[in-house]
Amino acid sequence: MTFRAKHLLGIEHLHPTEITTLLDLADRYADHNRRGVAHRDVLAGMTQINMFFENSTRTQASFEIAGKRLGADVMNMGMQASSIKKGETLIDTALTLNAMHPDLLVVRHPHSGAVDLLAQKVNCAVLNAGDGKHEHPTQALLDALTIRRAKGRLHRLSIAICGDVAHSRVARSNIMLLGKMENRIRLIAPPTLMPSGMNEFGCEVFEDMEEGLKDVDVVMMLRLQKERMDGGFIPSEREYFHRYGLDAAKLAHAKPDAIVMHPGPMNRGVEIDGTIADDINRSVIQEQVEMGVAVRMAAMDLLAQNLRAARALPQGIMA
């Protein structure tokens, strides 16, 4: 057993062997999912609550399907509408839910660190489905699995992450995961969308996209978060597409067999040209969605094992 974590709050505190353990299991789940092999006993009798304080269709659906494939009882709570409006604090919401004894809590929240805060107050396993601009660990794990399956390895690759790095939790989790697995990471963004201090993370920073894409194995595009563009970080969408949108001409600077990734949902014609996104020889965007379910199954499986092990301990010894 080389996955000891109680929660999956981020990539930052995971050890490379834990990442590999999780990806190996997810790899098997991905194959089983394709063959239609069911595993309804893994989370049988467990309750999974999806708490989304921020809009999400894809991630929430992915977690729901993953839980159901493993036999959990899954409940979705849309939190934008309910208790926050009534003035309840996050901690009170957590304590209320905790009293209902769920086993797995999947949380997305608009504020960085909010999921960590919530995890301190509950007895169940917490999975971070994205907190503010901080982390989105299952996205990084599914990206890693996609890369590993496409490239046959997850080390010594040159990987470009392009776009709105400043507002992206996907970028942060990926930088940490790919860095831990010893890859070269190149960040490409207009300077207004590049957070400060990124070179201190061991990343190479580029403002010119063609230069940044030179000879990379993987091109990872980020969504331009329109809802976060309130300060006018870029002059216009069309200028952004011209300088930082992925099209055939820019992609030609990458290696001929470079793969193209995007966490979705895509803004076609803003950060990525539609023909690139649909090119089955380059784009692995659909595989990313597929791996998402497998990675979330693996994560919940491992956390549930740890939860059962912790609960099986006699009272008082570990308390």
Partner: peptide, 15 residues
């Protein structure tokens, strides 16, 4: 304060 720590934690920073 903006910088490596702010970027790591995903918190809004000030120069």
């Amino acid at each position: 304060t903006s910088g490596k720590f702010a970027s790591l934690r995903g918190l809004p920073g000030v120069t």
